[in-house]
């Protein structure tokens, strides 16, 4: 097996690691970096629990090989927590969390949406989060929590 020298930036830190070529990005983030906020739900692109930001775009890390992140900037839920991203507080305040397993994926996706479209409508929020599954909450409070972080609500 030929190890791959992966150089990337994770949550603002430059990382250089020799990795096994058969690692997915999800495995690299969870196992090698110990950033366990990124979850594995389905491993098939269906649930969105594994979303991370790659150069600002939400991607399903279960379907990317880690080597594909070479030269890229990755932000995980831990990165958003460290910068005190308002979505995290809003999810707590709006009681949008039950077991919490799906929430990092929702917050990552919402962060991508609001960075691009800070005044997204409820329909745009729903459309954007349509690839994320939650088995507990029923979604209403999740949509509400994202809505509260829109530009006009934060003023």
């Amino acid at each position: 097996m030929k190890k791959y020298l992966l150089k990337c930036q994770v949550n603002g830190k430059n990382i250089e690691r020799e990795i096994r070529p058969d690692k997915t990005l999800l495995e690299f983030i969870r196992e090698d970096l110990g950033l366990t906020g990124t979850k594995e739900g389905c491993g098939e692109g269906e649930c969105g629990a594994c979303l991370d930001l790659l150069d600002g775009r939400a991607v399903n890390s279960c379907l990317m090989m880690a080597a594909q992140a070479h030269g890229k900037k990755i932000i995980t839920i831990e990165g958003l927590r460290d910068e005190k991203n308002p979505l995290i507080d809003s999810f707590a305040k709006e009681a949008a969390v039950q077991c919490g397993f799906c929430i990092p994926g929702f917050i990552i996706k919402a962060e991508e949406l609001l960075s691009e479209n800070p005044e997204a409508t409820d329909d745009e929020i729903k459309e954007s989060l349509a690839g994320n599954l939650c088995r507990c909450t029923g979604y209403k409070n999740i949509i509400k929590a994202v809505g509260k972080v829109r530009k006009k609500c934060l003023k």
């Binding site: 692109g45 790659l54 991607v59 399903n60 990317m64 954007s128 690839g131």
Partner: peptide, 12 residues
């Protein structure tokens, strides 16, 4: 495009 998978899958 909007009919194609989810928006995160479309990023890939």
């Amino acid at each position: 495009v909007p009919h194609f998978a989810s928006s995160s899958l479309r990023n890939m």
